[in-house]
Design a protein around this nucleic acid. Structure first.
Lengths: 265, 265
DNA sequence: CGTCTGATTGAGCGTAATCAAAGGTAGTGG
DNA sequence: CCACTACCTTTGATTACGCTCAATCAGACG
């Protein structure tokens, strides 16, 4: 397994010597959810070089507009993608859990339009674009898998636009709880009805286009309804069907269940 | 150039015989904005087979959750990607202009999470996934260009989340006007300060998470401020700097200006 | 000339924002 | 073990942006 240093460094990341099979295995697992990869292609993923960093909560990993030459693989914790307004207010546009390569996009667009921030204490790995590009070029099917992975991301993003644009606070937050539950379970990290979500109410607000005050009241009402409770960074879903109904949650957008008949021949 | 039939068929698309170099040239042009392609790769794009369809406004081309085996290239008109709520209300998540392959994503994820609809009368071309996949597999650098193209889309989507989540109606609509202006000009279709936008106020509302009534009042106030006017499906920007300021428009998110030093070697 | 779609205006209301302050809880250090 | 701090959560009071419902108006079209 991967060595790791649990010391939390407040304002700087710490470089670590890395034999991080576990993290890359998580990433491979994620790819395999939707893409069929040969043993050779899987090896190419597992043998990617990477560098581990222990990151404190609230530390920004990538700034909006920055040009990077690596992608960030989440090994542990919760990472957020965000956009920032002129006045400094932020909108979180995506949550990334362990196994997610949270800015795989930057391989083809190294000057990012968004920023990346650690929402909780995180273990993050940098994987060089050069290596990812080499892997993709020499394994066309792997390139497809990478592309597919970022497409899933885009599909979730589109759903967020719809949620923020057309749903009320209850439904938005319920939807987030459903989405993260399914993702956590699929990633093998927890049950879909009981999982850690290391964010505070302010951050939920930043993601759903609400203020922390309103998130608070909405969480209270969701709890009263008996559908879900969120306490101490942990989501407990008491009535999944009810929550799905409140959220109007239709998981198609996560693009699971592909029969994978469409890989490169 | 491409033959086309201007007859507008109300509820059914019409199949056309196609020698559609012009449309594919538009798509190629779009790819070349951000990717460097060899003559060989460019030929591969231009020689893609496609089938032309004349489509009436409001006609849905792809339904949410549908599995498709082709992508839709916009030849003329405005196409929208959308998500639909349980009660039928829609949220438009993207606008696509001529030259855009509006669901290139479906090449790697044929069961879409979103729908595609014609916002105006449109000329649309179907390009088979098999052909696109073949082109991508035999030209790794072209695969990167495709991937990059969908990444741009995702970046715009992230910006929309931020706009809808954190900005007021004025700023949202101003931002849309800026974005579409830049896109139209880059595509060589119009000036960034004066361009056609064949949608009604209802559709602007569906895109920005507002009602048509509120869009109406907001457009009026934008007009009063002297920044921009929208009449008869046409945007006139009178004060670009003012509009940019109202919108907090920072074009980085469109991922132009890549120095393209990061293409596959 | 009626029909249809889209734009416009008005009145009233509700969700969520803002402003302000009080509790909780965990961590730190004396 | 308590003081002190930092961060979060919770509550209250007030405000406003944008929604809903409803009616009117304008232009395009067959």
């Amino acid at each position: 397994m991967t060595e790791r240093c649990d010391a939390l460094l407040p304002r700087r990341e710490m470089r670590m010597s890395a034999s991080n099979h576990a993290a890359l295995a998580g990433f491979l697992k994620r790819l395999l959810m939707r893409s069929h990869l040969s043993a050779d292609e899987q090896d190419a993923v597992l043998s990617l070089k990477s560098q581990a960093f222990q990151v404190a909560a609230r530390r920004d990993l990538v700034f909006p507009g920055q040009t990077v030459e690596y992608s960030c693989l989440v090994g542990d914790g919760l990472v957020g993608r965000f956009d920032q307004m002129r006045d400094g207010r932020r909108q979180i546009t995506a949550f990334h859990i362990a196994g997610d390569m949270c800015d795989l996009h930057s391989v083809v667009a190294p000057t990012t339009g968004w920023g990346i921030t650690a929402l909780s204490t995180c273990l993050v790995y940098h994987v060089a674009h050069d290596d990812l590009r080499r892997a993709a070029t020499s394994h066309p099917n792997l390139a497809m898998a990478f592309w597919r992975d970022t497409t899933v991301d885009a599909s979730i993003l589109a759903k967020w636009v719809a949620n923020v644009g057309r749903k009320d606070a209850q439904s938005r937050i319920a939807h987030l709880m459903c989405e993260m539950g399914v993702r956590m379970e699929r990633a093998g990290l927890a049950s879909h009805v009981s999982y850690p979500l290391p964010v505070n109410q302010e951050q939920i607000g930043d993601a759903m286009g609400l203020t922390s005050v309103h998130v608070n009241r909405t969480l209270q009402s969701l709890k009263r309804s008996g559908a879900v409770s969120f306490q101490k960074h942990h989501v407990e879903i008491h009535d999944w069907d009810e929550l799905v109904s409140i959220a109007d949650f239709v998981p198609t957008f996560m693009l699971f269940d592909e029969r994978r008949k469409n890989d490169a021949a």
